[in-house]
Write a protein that binds this DNA or RNA. Sequence first.
DNA 1: TTGAAAGCGTTACCAC
DNA 2: GTGGTAACGCTTTCAA
Lengths: 337, 337
Amino acid sequence: MAKRYTIQDIARKAEVGVGTVSRVLNDDPNVKTKTRSKVQAVIDKIGYQPSYAARSLRTQKSNTIGFIADAVATTPFAVNLIKGAQDAAWEQGKLLLIVDADNDPARRERALESMLEREVEGIVYAAMYHQEVTLSDAFRSVPTVLVDCYSQDEMYPSCVPDEFQGAYDATKELIRNNHERIALILGAELESIYPAMRGRYQGYCEALKEAGIDLAPEFVRVGEGNAHSGFSETSALMNLPEPPTAIFCCTDRMALGTYDAVKAVGLSVPDDISVIGFDNQPVIVEQLHPPLSTMALPHEEMGHWSINTLLKPTPIPERQVLPCPYIKRASVKRLEV
Amino acid sequence: MAKRYTIQDIARKAEVGVGTVSRVLNDDPNVKTKTRSKVQAVIDKIGYQPSYAARSLRTQKSNTIGFIADAVATTPFAVNLIKGAQDAAWEQGKLLLIVDADNDPARRERALESMLEREVEGIVYAAMYHQEVTLSDAFRSVPTVLVDCYSQDEMYPSCVPDEFQGAYDATKELIRNNHERIALILGAELESIYPAMRGRYQGYCEALKEAGIDLAPEFVRVGEGNAHSGFSETSALMNLPEPPTAIFCCTDRMALGTYDAVKAVGLSVPDDISVIGFDNQPVIVEQLHPPLSTMALPHEEMGHWSINTLLKPTPIPERQVLPCPYIKRASVKRLEV
DNA sequence: TTGAAAGCGTTACCAC
DNA sequence: GTGGTAACGCTTTCAA
């Protein structure tokens, strides 16, 4: 491993002062073009790399961003969130200090403390499901952005998936394929603490309304988000005198049960029943037969957003809504009219 | 945000020199017990926290460990691996610099370079599936440990799951429940580049042998690891003149298909057929009905291991094998004799 | 066993 | 525009 060059070495070789080298490094405009290129040449030639430690010590900045994630270990989505944040941070020369708070407020607090001690430049707080959170006042002492959640007082910039647009597009897609008898299985009560289902319900209603299709109350079911409830709600749907031709499942996990229920009555997806899911949950979505068409939660994009927003000169405390794209697979069939 | 205390502040308040404070901080034995406790009292009282930047600058150590993961984004296991490593690193006061190399050797090389520039103290290289890897020579310039993989030359400490023991225990568990007609569905050819299936096959054979059960060739099937092949291999098994009473699926994803195939012939899990999977793959394992009993891949443990091994004074280049515990759920039924 | 002082590699201020 | 120099907070000699 070669000896590390310092700013002194550069200064000597370029025959300038260390101050000038520092200015070149930091894009200070007060350097003559000629001097700059002379210094830059030396830097490039020997492949000089500034010391993060020295820089941090001097500037009192850590080049580190804290990433507090809740319940990382219990959801396959965390990976994409972290990847998105990591990529964005890497590009800007920042390190990510990732801690899993395990959904425990005390742990969350301790994580924040430890991060403050390390002088992080900012905190990304990431929930694993779209929800409202209340953060302790301690978070105000450092720039903070929220991912997949928002605080009641809207004190921090935050980003959440566009549940409305996702559901609207999903329903629209079904309508475009000539479906009219479109059922909806919600993943939780409309009044639950998770706002996702409210948005999805509204998106579904709006798409129907625009297409001039009456909302059939018997087509709207409330499940619990898991495969089991997907099965029972779908069974109920299939036993209707006039069952739907398409089902929009508000979680991919419920779609798992939906597939089973459709099979159980001797029908098949997508030939008899078209299905669109929501979440684009890894594994489920590809392992199902046929592979499930679904609306993707923009986790990687939210990860990017979080770092880029945090690093802006003055982040504005507003709620950003990121689109949920349609991922076409093979669970929707076009109806002939 | 309170002003940060420095070692000077401590020294003044404790009426000692900064050197002494430093010695206390670093557990130097050459400090009188009385002095030590006096200094420690001040430290505790004002909650002093040393500056990582200053320490790094002075010691030329970064307190940072590089974590290169391949294909993080494509597997739900990555989360546990990262969590394990993160927890262990956190405990030792280290930061983790995580980069996803996306299975691209060039990216892997670039990641390593960037990490070396940041003077990481070591590198954890984590594959997402048990496999052999070849690392460029550049890795020799820094302490490196391998996770879920090993290098052909066994130059680095590495850890992999104990596939043999996992399969052995799974089969044993079935035998303990009085099963004798136990089928095996492998997730890949025995000769594939992934050594996992070889170990699992051997564990299965050994357990059978120990119990005095003859290996029935028609009970050993080779799938492709996915739900689709799980379905077809299970169907073949069920069509045998004397079908098995238990199936050991070498991947949970195949178990998904196994469940479907069992249902397709009008039977049920676990009443007619017991199933044990392998991998403890999130989502699948809980969403299946009944929940799948399976052998867990020790990802979090491997994460721990990687950091702890890296931080040892002199890591020894040997392959460590970590046990795969049995996770009991509800897919195994005890046969009455 | 302890205190004083010399750096570690930067940045930022102050002269020129 | 540029060069010198004093910090930043710590560890580690070296003397005492």
